[in-house]
Amino acid sequence: MSEPARRDPRPGRRSGGVVALQVGSRLRIQRQQAGLGRQELADALGVTERQLRDYEDGTVRVSAAMLVRTAKVLGSTVLDFFPNVRSRPGSVARPR
Rank of each mutant, 00 (worst) to 15 (best):
V78F: 04
R7N: 06
P11R: 05
V19G: 03
R13L: 15
Q22V: 15
R31W: 01
A93H: 11
Q22T: 15
R50I: 15
L52C: 06
L67Y: 00
R96I: 10
F81L: 08
T70D: 00
G75W: 05
F82Q: 01
R13M: 09
G90S: 13
P95I: 11
S63V: 04
R13C: 11
G16F: 01
L52S: 02
R50M: 12
R69K: 11
Y55H: 13
G12Q: 00
R38D: 01
V62H: 00
A44L: 12
G90Y: 06
G58W: 00
A65P: 00
R96Y: 07
G90F: 04
L67F: 03
L21G: 15
R53V: 12
N84Q: 15
P83C: 04
R94H: 11
G17D: 07
Q30C: 10
L41T: 03
T70E: 00
G35K: 03
R61E: 12
R7E: 12
P95E: 04
R10E: 14
V68D: 01
R94S: 15
R61H: 07
E49S: 13
D80G: 13
A65Q: 08
R28W: 11
R69F: 03
D43K: 05
V85I: 14
P9G: 04
A64H: 10
Q32Y: 11
G24T: 09
R13A: 14
I29A: 14
L67V: 00
R6A: 15
G75V: 10
G24Q: 02
P4G: 04
F82R: 03
T59A: 06
P89H: 11
S76V: 14
V73C: 04
A93K: 11
P9K: 05
R94W: 12
R96F: 12
R14K: 10
N84Y: 13
V18M: 09
R26T: 05
P9E: 03
S91K: 10
R31T: 08
V92C: 05
G24Y: 02
R96H: 14
R13I: 06
V92G: 03
V23H: 03
Q33V: 13
A64D: 06
V62Q: 02
Q30M: 15
M66Q: 09
Q32P: 00
S76L: 11
R86S: 14
G37V: 10
R28A: 14
A42S: 06
D8H: 01
G37K: 08
G16N: 00
S15D: 06
M1N: 09
E56F: 07
R28I: 09
A5V: 14
A93M: 10
A5H: 07
R10N: 08
L36V: 11
P4S: 06
R26N: 13
S63H: 00
L45T: 08
V62L: 10
L21P: 04
G17Q: 07
G46T: 05
E49Y: 02
D43R: 12
S15G: 07
T48E: 02
S87C: 13
A5F: 12
R69Q: 02
A65C: 01
S76T: 14
A20C: 14
E40I: 06
L74H: 00
M1K: 09
S63A: 11
L41P: 02
E3Y: 13
L36Q: 09
R14I: 10
G24P: 02
G37E: 07
R94P: 00
A44Q: 08
Q33R: 14
A5W: 05
